[in-house]
Structure formats: C-alpha cells, structure tokens
Amino acid sequence: MSETLADAADGADVRTAHQDLHSEEGALRGEHPGRARNPVIKVADLAWLEFEKPDLDRAEVFARDFGFGVAARTPGALWLRGTFAGSPCMVIRRGRTSRFIGPAFRASERSDLEHLARVTGTSVRPVDVPGGGQTVDLLDPSGFPVRVVHCGEELPALPEQQPLLLNFGTDHRRVNATQRPPREPSRIQRLGHVVLETRVFAQALDWYLDTLGMIVSDFLFLDGQRDRGPTMAFIRCDRGSLAVDHHTLAMHLGPGTGYVHSAYQVTDLDTIAAGGEYLKERGYRRSWGIGRHIQGSQLFDYWRDPDHFMLEHFADGDLFSCDTEPGWAPMSTSGLAQWGPPATRDFLGASPSPQRVRDVIQALRGDNEMDPARLVGLLKAMHS
C-alpha cells in the first residue's frame, strides 16, 4: 500500500479543521488525505502538452484564431506559446493521426530531474524545446507518457491584452470614454490545466501525488458511493505558501483513457466573449459556455478545434496555497457551474459513438476500477 493510501486508511490525520473555504464539507475520517507524506519531487507547474496531428498548417490556423502565438515551426513540429514569459504551452508534432500524447510538467530545480531519474530508474535526456532543456520521461498508471522538464532558456514576454476599466456602482473609474473591446482572438497568456479520463483513477491519483508531489484541491464522489472513494480529483502543484491554480491537473474515472480538455488563461470576461465571437465568425464550434465553474471558480468558454479536441478559454480562477484542505462534493452535471447555459451533451461526452460503446465493453471486461455500479453512478451524475 502506498504512503498516500496508508495515511487515508489509518485515519490518523483526520480533517477536523475544514474551513468551508471552497466546499460545503471536507473529508470524513479515514478518507483520502489528498497528498502524499513524502513525495519523490514537487513539480512547479505544467510546462506544455504534446499532440500529434497530420496537418500542421490547419493546426496553426486554428491556434492563431484561438489566441496562441507561434514560438517555433519546423517541418515536423509546431510549438505554441502564450504571452507570459516561460516555456511554450503546446507542441503539435506531425503524425499519421490526430492524438494526444501526454503532459510535460516543469521541475522546480534542475537537481530534481537527477533525483527523479534515480528513484524511478530512468535517465535525464535532452528535450527539443525551443531554447533547449532536459527531461525525465515516465509513464503514469493510465499509460500516458509524462515528461518532467527543466528548460534552458525562457521565452520572453509578449504584449498583453489589457483588462477593460470597469465602472461599479458609485465607483466611476471610466468617464467620458466608451467601452469597445475589439473583435479579435482571445490572446492566450499561459497554459492552466489539463483534464484526463482514466479507468484506474485511484492508482493514477496516488502516482501523481507520490511521484510529482501534487496535492488535491477538491474531490468529487458518486451519489451513494462515497464509501468507495472519490471518482474525480482537481489537483494542484504544491508551492508551499505561494498560492497557485486550484487545479493544474484534473482526472476522473471513466470507461475510456484519454484527453478530455485543456485550459488556457486569458485576460478577463470581455476577452473571453469577444474572442468567442471571433471564433464563431470563423466557423468553429463552441462546446459549452460562457459560464463560471464551481470547483476552481473560473470563467469558462469551451471550443472544439478542427480535430475535435476540446480547449477552454478561462479567467479569474481560484488560487490556493498548500494549507487549504481538500473539499468533498457529489459529482453532478448541475454542480459544474454557478451560472451559464446548461452543460451540453458534447461537453459531457454523452453523445453515443461506436468508440464509446467499445470503451464501455472493454472497461467492464478489464482489470480496472470500472464496474456496473460505477458505470450506473456515472450515468446518474451525468443527468443530475
């Protein structure tokens, strides 16, 4: 049993001081503590996501329309970036099919790579990121390739879209001036998070906590099945007293194993809305939005790219330091947003397809955490 699960099982560290900062309740006695006692390293952030696509020209057109900048382009790869200084936030490599490869996380220190490689029996190798860098390549329990990287040079910052000056009640900061946000792409500032589906949720959760030192902000559980443990986790990096994104990685139990969506920070609500109009005029399809989430609180707007990958514009997300304990809440569709239109079937992945049917059959026959009760619970949550 891993240290993470052992901590939960012995009940020694009961969450008795939950402050209701972000959830109606905290953990019950013996539930998962949401962090590992002695992780191998503590990653600092997501660095980038890796994809393969056959048509890099088409991928670049959408990327620019969505608000990415191009950090580098070669015959075999397209590196995308935000306006903030740092690493690129996505690489799309030329491949025979469109598929998600995996995430790359940023190591806090170069020495973390050496330590991680020793503990995991791997090696430190060069990585082909613009500006150079090094990587340790791992495989998580779901089968996703996971890179932990340290970059040699940072990309310089680019010009920002400035937030609009707003009037509030009697606080009049804009006088004799009109408000006309331009109809242009929502300029991406940085990569915020990635969401993954897995059939081995508990194993994958403990791997990210034990190996990369991440900690849980919120757990979701299925109605009537809380005693079986959570089925979704919103996971952040542990930067001590420094407040960071509510979630850098989110995972949920499901019949498939794969990418769900990724999220990219933009300036504000007007940037989200004006950028959405720009995308709509160019024939792209909104999946769900605009609204405000509950877990994480961020403003959101979800779109599909030409290869059917889902990407999110977001702004104004929660920031937690290491002393905020995990919240616990039931999983439900109605619990996805504070306000906004109802979640669509497309966003929920509820539209039947031959691949989804195959996923369900394979999951129920396989050695994993999916069983008929879990499947029924997930279907109920989707309609609740």
Rank of each mutant, 00 (worst) to 15 (best):
Gly340Phe: 07
Ser334Arg: 14
Gly67Arg: 05
Asp305His: 02
Ala8Phe: 00
Leu113Cys: 03
Ser123Asp: 14
Tyr264Glu: 05
Arg236Phe: 04
Pro341Lys: 05
Gly340Arg: 07
Ala243Ser: 12
Ala263His: 02
Phe68Tyr: 01
Ser123Tyr: 14
His293Lys: 03
Gly327Tyr: 06
Phe168Asn: 11
Ala274Ser: 15
Ile92Leu: 09
Thr248Tyr: 00
Asp20Cys: 08
Ile101Thr: 10
His383Glu: 13
Gln298Asn: 13
Asp268Phe: 09
Leu222Met: 15
Leu220Gln: 04
Ala12Thr: 11
His18Ile: 05
Glu60Val: 06
Ala263Phe: 05
Arg358Thr: 14
Phe68Val: 05
Arg199Asn: 08
Gly254Met: 01
Met1Glu: 13
Ala204Asn: 10
Asn368Asp: 11
Thr198Asp: 00
Pro330Gly: 02
Ala6Gln: 14
Glu60Cys: 09
Leu378Gly: 03
His247Glu: 06
Gln265Lys: 13
Leu209Ser: 07
Trp207Tyr: 12
Gly256Cys: 04
Pro185Cys: 11
Asp218Val: 04
Met90Ile: 00
Asp227Lys: 07
Ala363Pro: 04
Phe62Asp: 08
Pro352Ala: 09
Pro185Ala: 13
Thr135His: 01
Met382Arg: 06
Arg174Gly: 01
Cys237Ser: 09
Glu325Arg: 06
Thr344Pro: 00
Asp238Ile: 01
Tyr208Arg: 04
Arg81Tyr: 11
Asp367Trp: 13
Val360Cys: 09
His293Thr: 01
Gly86Ala: 08
His247Asn: 07
Val360Phe: 06
Arg37Asn: 14
Tyr302Trp: 10
Gly67Thr: 02
Pro75Ala: 11
Gly121Ile: 09
Arg190Tyr: 14
Gly317Arg: 07
Leu253Ala: 04
Gly69Met: 04
Thr83Ala: 01
Asp128Val: 02
Leu319Cys: 14
Val14Phe: 15
Arg304His: 12
Arg286Pro: 10
Phe309Arg: 02
Thr170Asp: 15
Gln162His: 11
Arg236Ser: 01
Ser98Asp: 06
Leu78Arg: 04
Leu46Arg: 00
Lys42Thr: 00
Gln355Ile: 11
Ser87Lys: 01
Glu25Trp: 11
Met1Tyr: 12
Gly254Ser: 12
Glu160Trp: 02
Gly275Ala: 07
Trp79Pro: 06
Trp339Ser: 08
Leu56Arg: 00
Asp301Pro: 06
His115Pro: 01
Pro54Phe: 10
Ile272Val: 15
Arg187Val: 14
Thr178Leu: 14
Cys237Ala: 03
Val266Cys: 13
Arg174Val: 08
Val40Ser: 07
Leu348Ser: 03
Ile188Cys: 07
Ser321Ala: 15
Arg285Ser: 03
Val357Met: 14
Glu52Trp: 12
Ala47Met: 01
Pro126Leu: 07
Leu139Met: 12
Ala72Lys: 10
Arg292Pro: 02
Ile41His: 00
Met310Val: 03
Glu369Gln: 12
Met1His: 15
Arg190Phe: 12
Gly335Lys: 00
Thr178Trp: 10
Ala263Ile: 04
Ile290His: 12
His18Trp: 10
Asp367Tyr: 15
Glu109Pro: 04
